[in-house]
């Protein structure tokens, strides 16, 4: 598929891409008491099918420690709905975390693939291989006119949601986000803040995805969402240039200060980190220092509280702040 959609020039705006497929088995109930009794078998079936392909692990929601739950949630591998299903909810995930499958969430299977940057086609390529094998071995519910049958009618058809996470500080700061959201809604896309409302400090992350799953082919969904994401990135970059032109020295001063604090701090809470990270990432885009987008985004994700606790084995907020400061400053110094 066309390379131009994996556009590198959008690296400083497009954080990650995700493709999700909703699938159901024709011979199992979708929810209710019957499903509680029977659908534990599905976990085994999916695991057995995937096992020969890669190293997979199964994480059962019924005995999931809070720490691991937090980690998996902050990485978007599990949803709150899945975590709540203590009866037979499970996550099946491969070793390098590129492919995962929630079992017994809203649908029997929710296959997911994440890639870095704007790279929906790559994500689809990865997920399509696994989906093909699963559909060869399992009896997926399908209808000849409507495609995949899902629990909620909002997912019927391809069962596919393609989304791109976008970092949009300039559109946010200049108040143009509402306009963008309205325009995209009209064109059939959903744009929403990733961390919900009141998330100002949290990095200005937005997610764009296809609103409907019926009446479009997989390829059409990937293309239209990619183009729409490019369009938003273009608008964002325009605004970033305007901000810079307004007062170049001031812009550089603010970004360099953020860099200075992050490279030298000893205690760093998540709120402060998130707001300084925005300036750090902007400064990298303007070229005040040399930091690659992927390094910036990994830093952003890995500094979340549950992820720090999970990786570093620290549990008080002070210990987390110490580790966060250490990890950030070491990363920044190592990058130069």
């Amino acid at each position: 598929m066309a390379d131009y959609l994996n556009a590198e020039q959008y690296g400083f705006c497009a954080v990650s891409s995700r493709v999700r497929l909703a699938r159901n088995l024709a011979d199992y109930p979708f929810f209710g008491p019957q499903a509680n009794r029977l659908n534990g078998e599905i976990v085994e079936k999916v695991y057995r099918t995937l096992k020969p392909l890669d190293t997979f692990s199964v994480v059962y929601m019924n005995d999931l420690p809070d720490l691991q739950a937090g980690y998996l949630r902050e990485k978007y591998f599990i949803s709150p709905l899945l975590a709540e299903n203590r009866v037979n909810g499970a996550l099946i995930i491969n070793k390098d975390e590129t492919f995962s499958c929630m079992v017994n969430e809203e649908d029997h299977l929710r296959e997911q693939c994440f890639t870095e940057g704007l790279n929906l086609f790559k994500a689809y390529e990865i997920i399509a291989v696994k989906d093909k094998i699963l559909s060869d071995r399992m009896n997926f519910a399908r209808d000849k006119d409507f495609g995949y049958i899902t629990t909620c009618m909002s997912n019927v058809g391809t069962g596919m949601r393609a989304s791109v996470m976008l970092f949009l500080p300039a559109l946010h700061a200049t108040g143009k986000m509402n306009e963008v959201i309205a325009e995209m809604k009209q064109k059939g896309f959903t744009v929403r803040g990733v961390f919900g409302e009141g998330s100002r400090g949290e990095g200005y992350m937005y997610q764009i995805s296809n609103e409907v799953t019926f009446g479009f082919t997989e390829n059409e969904i990937l293309k239209t969402v990619s183009y729409a994401a490019c369009k938003i990135c273009d608008l964002e970059l325009d605004e970033r240039h305007k901000i810079f032109d307004f007062d170049p020295l001031r812009t550089e001063d603010e970004c360099m200060r953020a860099y200075g604090v992050l490279a030298n701090c000893k205690l760093l809470d998540y709120g402060e980190f998130a707001s300084l990270w925005v300036k750090l990432a902007l400064g990298a885009y303007y070229g005040f220092y040399n930091l690659k987008p992927n390094l910036l985004y990994r830093l952003f994700i890995n500094m979340r509280p549950a992820i720090i606790s999970y990786h570093e084995g620290v549990f008080t907020s002070r210990d987390r702040d110490i580790h966060r400061a250490k990890l950030v400053s070491e990363t920044l110094r190592g990058a130069l």
């Binding site: 159901n24 088995l25 109930p29 929810f31 519910a141 209808d143 409507f146 049958i149 009618m153």
Partner: peptide, 21 residues
Amino acid sequence: TGYIGCADCFKNFKNELVPVI
């Protein structure tokens, strides 16, 4: 609700589901 309970729901109510979808 827009939710079906099993794959048979879809088969049985396919015509009625068109406006819902």
